[in-house]
Write a protein that binds this DNA or RNA. Structure first.
Length: 1002
RNA sequence: GCCCAGGUGGUGGAAUGGUUUACACGCAGCACUUAAAAUGCUGUGAGCGAAAGCUCAUGUGGGUUCGAGUCCCACCCUGGGCACCA
């Protein structure tokens, strides 16, 4: 008995396929295209594992099937080779990541070839290849030019072990996705991609993805987290302010910038406003201006001075001279007199350099607000920070509509000046029930209120503690809510009542406005908080399942409303009719939402999705192609200078200070500004690993293009990807990022398909034999290469698919593979021993098998396709004791060849070998896929089930299509059936053709 | 807590509302062999029975139906995602 020498045969055909370029996809030709994609691997030092094998084999089987179906199949492969492991290896062993990566790639490539995967190797790509990342950088520049890449300082997730910032999506359960370290919050200047600008498009696009699994779409939808509601502003109760004076900046006039707009806004709130033109024009002097104001304006304890830029210096000068004011608001003031753009403004600098008598300034002023613009590139944030500290307040950071607050309208400024607290809510209808406000500990307005906060030390302690807690700790406390009263009150715009303002860490700065209106009677969290601190709970919606309350909320007309004693009341979060809400009483919650939003707020849509932190402080990534020039600000690297490659460094160690190791390479960092030729510095942050994988499928279409990311013609030929195999774990990472990039590139006219992946097929995880996740530490890792050594690639591939449905998590079972091995051996032996023997046709079974295998491959039910082929072989393979004495007929050569073709996508090596042994000279993998005749695929003989009262009492073998009458007659002749019918009357008869007959008796 | 997916023999799993347990593993018996391995054949949900056959079994409890693993309601458990998102 011959045994299948898998080693020799598999090698032989792998070499032949490579030589013949059997799987190369043609850019030309008339065949319909089919683009099948798997998630390209990270070439780690460990090599590829079972987790790679499963999707790659599925994609391979699928691709081979469509090739035989007559499609031009593109099944490409590449390497996602930037990333931390290579860099950490470099740090440890002082080997350049390029070197270790190349070695790992060579190894992984060999593995893939041993697995017999039919990749088109001519299109192999590598994200670390400068010819590739040139275009990754180019795409970044398109984002930058479109205003979708921006730099900002913010609290970001920071991994202390990897010493780099992380995107929101990379934090799993409060831990770093890569190394599992608890993530900290760190304030850093970072690059962001404005994925939030695409939130709506990403959400809308999901609707078009008809061939995506619902759970994947749902998970993305939840991640984007759209909620529709309203923003409402609560004015802070401030008594005693009657007048504002607006002091303009250097060289400006009262009609410039936001001044006129602000004046009108403040006047409409009933304040008196003066906006005088100060002397000095382009070169104003602070003392002259102060003189002028003192002469022309009435300054008193009811006046607040707003100083913009140079105007801020004048304001402080006035206070220093003894003017008494209610408050001073300093907007983007260059306190140190230094400018980031390098330009000279001599009088401003001179005025600032004089300094101030802070003791006098503080003594004469009720409150200070120091406001800096996070997008300012003229006045440094540090100016604001140091002066805020000297004035004893926290700096208020605001995003100006135009840098340095130069726009005609600056809404954020108005909010700060008026001390209004904006809240976002999806339940505007409950506004009359808002009995207090809660700010997040990071809320910028808190420092604003400082002068009014009597227990500042306590508040400060609370805030600092909250900031120290990680997200995980903050969420873990869940049960007990903590918070502290700020001593200030805001006005509920609906009830006009003054309600207390609290700080509590159950309110998150990152969502909405970082402040909420608390409606304890109708929100679970607010309810808990109110109970804890005995705050009033006012019912404003009647619970329909409870006895109705009167419109004032009491049970009888005489009873007072239900908002009396703090901490007492009921919670109801459902819908109903409004009560206790004056003009809104009796309305449904739905009606009230519309009406109250119209009266007191404006409609607003909020998303949970945050912008994508796009910079990493590491070496082994694509350098962000920007240059910082003292004169021109941030300048993109000209496209003709791309790619910006990585310099050689001695040390790959991250600095840990928030700067990349690249920052230490002076000869790389220092460049000439492409704009003005002056001295400039390169951006030293690199891109996250997700960058290279966010467009790679586009490059496969046109991998050697030197002029473009990918040519339109070839993009049209190949994209979108028809089927994308991959893991659930990428749903809110790679898959979302890729859709974002593709949608953006589509909007910019660079790609031809709006959505990148027509169909998404998730695969299950392969667990170890113990049912646990395979890991070195558990010692349950099954190495695919060892299995191949023992059983061959065909057996391994088929067994992986046979283990269970493609989407399910499966456990590897060492013994099970023998079943597949036996099957393959039997296929081989069948062909051997059936030579020169008489043959018969098994048409029905063959067509049934063709039908099942075809439909199962298309439906990704590879396991049942394999079962059907086993059934076929079992049926034709019946040998008595002596193998040479044939008991059952062999099928004809024609039928056998059809069977081999069915098996070809699953066991490519064996079938190719047998195919050639039958005398063929060409590859089985390019032969036409068998067709089935639906009539022949049906059974000629069927088993009828005879039931009495739904219970099986007999079965009948009869030809398909037998009439009800005939079946009934035969059924009633049966002994057992008769016994159950005895003495009863048949009241009903149910007949299902070719299936069953059921007698209902009485 | 909320949102998904799932729960079927000793095991992996199969099953358009129609014989539950296909296919495979494992196990048992038999054949071949001096023997073992390999290979082949037969059997294999549980209980009762000599057999014919009967009863009970798809997480639990109800319901719809001539008939439910499949549809509906409630609950339990496992896996995945989100998690104070206002």
């Amino acid at each position: 008995m011959t045994k299948y020498d898998h080693k020799a045969i598999e090698k032989k055909w792998q070499n032949a396929w490579e030589k013949e370029k059997t799987y190369q996809a043609s850019d030309a030709g008339k065949k319909p295209k089919k683009y099948v994609l798997i998630e390209f691997p990270y070439p780690s030092g460990e090599g590829l594992h079972m987790g790679h094998l499963r999707p790659y084999t599925a994609g391979d089987t699928y691709s081979r099937y469509f090739r035989m179906k007559g499609c031009e199949v593109l099944y490409p492969i590449g390497w996602d080779a930037f990333g931390l492991p290579a860099e950490n290896f470099a740090i440890k062993n002082k080997v350049h990541p390029r070197v270790s990566t190349a070695k790992n790639i060579a190894n992984a490539k060999k593995q893939l070839q041993n697995w017999g995967i039919s990749f088109d190797w001519s299109r192999e790509i590598n994200t670390t290849d400068p010819d590739y990342f040139k275009w990754t950088q180019w795409i970044f520049l398109q984002f930058y030019k479109a205003g979708l890449a921006y730099e900002a300082t913010g609290l970001i997730n920071w991994c202390p072990k990897d010493k780099t910032g992380l995107a929101n999506e990379e934090v799993i359960d409060g831990r770093c996705e890569r190394c599992g370290t608890v993530v900290e919050k760190k304030e850093l200047r970072q690059w962001y991609l404005k994925i939030t600008a695409y939130a709506e498009k990403l959400l809308e696009g999901l609707k078009e993805l008809k061939e995506w699994p619902e759970p994947v779409k749902l998970q993305q939808e939840n991640w984007i987290g759209k909620s529709e509601g309203a923003e409402i502003e609560f004015p802070i109760a401030q008594k005693g302010i009657r007048k504002f004076i607006i002091l303009h900046g250097r060289g400006s006039r009262p009609k410039d910038h936001f001044y006129t707009w602000l004046k009108k806004k403040l006047e409409s709130k009933g304040f008196e406003v003066q906006s005088p033109q100060m002397p000095g024009g382009e070169e104003p002097k602070d003392d002259e201006c102060a003189d002028f104001i003192q002469q022309h304006c009435n300054l008193d304890e009811h006046t607040v001075v707003i100083g913009h830029s140079f105007g801020g210096i004048v304001a402080l000068r006035l206070l220093e001279r003894g003017a008494r004011l209610a408050g001073a608001i300093l907007v983007a003031t260059p306190f140190t007199g230094k400018f980031m753009d390098g330009k000279n403004r001599p009088t401003v600098t001179a005025a600032a350099k004089k300094g101030f008598d802070f003791a006098a300034v503080i003594k004469n002023c009720g409150f200070f607000k120091v406001i800096s613009d996070t997008t300012d590139y003229v006045v440094a944030m540090s100016d604001g920070e140091s002066y805020a500290a000297k004035l004893g307040v926290n700096l208020i950071k605001a995003a100006a509509a135009k840098p340095h607050f130069l726009d005609e309208q600056e809404p954020e400024l108005l909010t700060i000046i008026l001390s209004r607290i904006a809240v976002f809510t999806t339940r505007v209808d409950t506004l009359p029930g808002a009995t207090f406000l809660v700010l997040a500990p990071e809320h910028p307005l808190i420092s604003n209120l400082k002068s009014q906060i009597k227990n500042w030390a306590e508040v400060k302690k609370y805030i600092e503690n909250a900031k120290k807690k990680t997200d995980m700790q903050r969420a873990a406390v869940e049960k007990e809510k903590t918070g502290i009263f700020l001593g200030s009150y805001a006005v509920n715009p609906a009830t006009k009542e003054e309600i207390p303002i609290w700080v509590a860490d159950y309110v998150l700065m990152g969502y909405g406005t970082g402040a909420i209106m608390a409606v304890p009677a109708h929100d679970e969290r607010d309810f808990e908080f109110a109970k804890q601190y005995k705050l009033p709970i006012r019912t404003v919606i009647n619970n329909p399942s409870q006895p109705p309350l009167n419109l004032r909320g009491g049970e009888t007309a005489e009873e007072p409303p239900l908002n009396i004693r703090g901490g007492e009341g009921e919670l109801f979060t459902g819908e109903g009719l409004l009560i206790n809400s004056d003009g809104y009483d009796g309305m449904s919650t739905e009606e009230a939402r519309k009406k109250i939003a119209k009266d007191f707020g404006q409609p607003k849509v909020q998303y949970k999705l945050r912008d994508w932190v796009f910079s990493r402080q590491r070496y082994w990534g694509e350098p962000i192609p920007l240059i910082h020039c003292q004169n021109c600000g941030t300048v993109p690297v000209p496209e003709e200078d791309l790619p910006v490659t990585l310099p050689e460094v001695k040390d790959y160690e991250p600095t840990g200070t928030g700067e990349s190791p690249l920052a230490a390479i002076d000869e790389w960092v220092n460049v000439k500004c492409p704009n003005c030729g002056g001295p400039a510095k390169r951006e030293t942050n690199t891109m996250p690993q997700w960058a290279g994988s966010s467009w790679y499928w586009l490059r496969y279409a046109d991998p050697d293009n030197k002029k473009e990311m990918a040519g339109k013609k070839l993009l049209k030929r190949w994209t979108p990807v028809d089927v994308y195999f991959g893991g659930m774990e990428h749903t809110t990472l790679h898959l979302l990022y890729s859709r974002f990039w593709n949608l953006f590139l589509y909007d910019q006219g660079h790609v031809t398909a709006k959505e990148p992946f027509t169909k998404r097929v998730p695969h299950g995880i392969v667990l170890g034999p113990d049912g646990e996740k395979m890991s070195k530490s558990r010692g349950n890792v099954v190495n695919p290469d060892e299995i191949i050594e023992k059983f061959g690639a065909d057996a391994l591939r088929m067994y992986e698919m046979f283990l269970g449905p493609h989407g399910d998590t499966v456990s590897w079972n060492d013994k099970g593979i023998m079943g597949i091995k036996r099957f393959l051996d039997r296929v081989l032996r069948y062909q051997e021993i059936s030579k020169d023997l008489p043959r018969v046709e098994k048409k029905n079974l063959l067509h049934k098998t063709i039908k099942k295998v075809t439909q199962d491959i298309e439906g990704f039910r590879f396991n049942t396709a394999i079962s059907q082929m086993m059934i076929y072989l079992n049926e034709v393979w019946k040998v008595s004791e002596d193998e040479n004495r044939i008991e059952v007929d062999f099928v004809t050569k024609e039928e056998w060849q059809e069977f081999l073709k069915l098996l070809a996508p699953f066991a490519p090596h064996l079938t190719e070998e047998l195919w050639h042994q039958l005398g063929h000279k060409d590859s089985i993998h390019l032969k036409e896929w068998p067709k089935f005749d639906p009539k022949l695929a049906q059974d000629t003989k069927v088993t009828f089930v005879v039931q009495v009262l739904g219970k099986v009492r007999a079965t009948l073998e009869m030809p398909a299509g037998t009439s009800q009458q005939e079946v009934k007659e035969k059924a009633l002749a049966g002994e057992n059936v008769n016994r159950h019918l005895e003495g009863k009357k048949i009241v009903k008869e149910i007949f299902v053709p070719d299936k069953l007959i059921n007698f209902v008796i009485k």
